Simulated scan of single mutants.
Amino acid sequence: MGKQATIRDVAKLAGVSLATVSRVLNESDYPVREELRQKVRAAVEELDYVPNAVARSLRREAVKDIGLVIPNVSNPFYLQTMLGVNDVLSKNECSMILCNTLRDVEQERGCLRQLYERQTRGVILSSVDESGDVVMEYSRRGMRFVLLDQKLTGVESTGINFDSRAGARMAVEHLISMGHSRIAFATMPMTRWTRAEMHRGYRDALLGAGLSYDGSLIYEWSPSSWDANSDLELETGQYIAELFLGDGCPATAVLCVNDMVAIGMIKVFLKHGVRVPEDISVIGFDDIPFAGAFVPALTTVHQPAQETGRLAAMMILNALSSDDGELTVSMNLTPRLVIRDTAAPPHAER
């Protein structure tokens, strides 16, 4: 008897990815062109490939609960992501288990432990843990992960990322094009990959325009303690704005690590009579629903949070239904600058 064909053999003969073969065989809702479906079916017939129907049945039975582990439900970006995840899961008759880690590493690890103990096999994770050891351990035990806008050292996992470096570079280049040369960067701790990527993009834009990089214009704040009932991003923006004003407004523009930090800064600026954008330009990051309604309407870098959630949910369901347990897929989303009312040429240029 010859060697039994595998899903890899089918993918190779059809000239498609393992994920595409899996979607066709499992009749996934994920869109696959009819032309590719026909190629997969033809390859299956030619190779006399017989999927493990029992295993597929067990997998489908097991995929009922999906964990969503996020650092802060009070941030509108994560709320939009959650809506996208829930939309896809509910249509696939799955339940979402929401875990709010409150940006605490131990809390996150406890959430993952609880999800594992209740045999939740799929987790969408936005991690605050700088180490990938815990995720790797649970991966070895059979849990599947989709990482949200995060890269963990040593972890090879399906993920959906936003090109934060390009987004920050785009925002700073926009400010430079209006005549700004002293641009600050307001951020929470740059221990997270996305924040470090934004910092790299900020620096890229300055150096690319022939401007010097001034470390004194990096306003990075990490609170010594945090009340879980408070809004950390908003408070971060308010605190940094006070520092910035205390330093004598050393820049004519500020790029903020997210919209909530930007809104916090603007509130303090206006409180002290500093006009936005007449006296200082501010650009946010995320484009939360409130950004356009805020006064003044916030110029920001758009991240499609709800669509990110939908894609992450489709990816975790596909990972759990795949015949190849080692298959990993990464997706990188492109940024878009949304120009509104908080950025203008520096005051001296008017």
Rank of each mutant, 00 (worst) to 15 (best):
M314F: 05
S164M: 07
D286G: 04
T81C: 00
A168C: 14
D247W: 04
M260W: 00
L232W: 02
R200A: 14
F162H: 08
L36T: 03
E117Y: 14
G132E: 12
E61P: 02
T120F: 09
A184S: 12
D87Y: 03
T308I: 14
T81H: 00
E27M: 02
A348R: 09
M82E: 11
P296M: 06
M178G: 12
D129Q: 04
L311H: 06
L337E: 07
L58V: 07
R182V: 15
L333T: 12
V50Q: 14
G122S: 03
S322F: 01
P346N: 12
S222D: 10
D87W: 02
N229T: 15
R350V: 10
L232V: 08
A11Y: 00
D204T: 09
V276Y: 14
G132D: 12
L327W: 02
A11R: 00
V32T: 01
D29W: 04
S216A: 13
A262I: 08
R33M: 00
G292H: 03
R109V: 12
F145I: 03
V24M: 03
E117L: 15
R200L: 15
N72I: 01
T153A: 10
T158E: 11
S224I: 13
L102A: 15
A42Q: 15
E117W: 11
L13N: 04
V123H: 01
D149Q: 13
L232K: 01
L298A: 10
S177Y: 08
R350T: 11
S28Y: 08
G237V: 01
K12R: 12
L152D: 10
W221I: 04
L217M: 13
V54H: 03
S28C: 07
D133C: 10
V54R: 08
V123A: 03
P296I: 02
A55Y: 07
I288W: 00
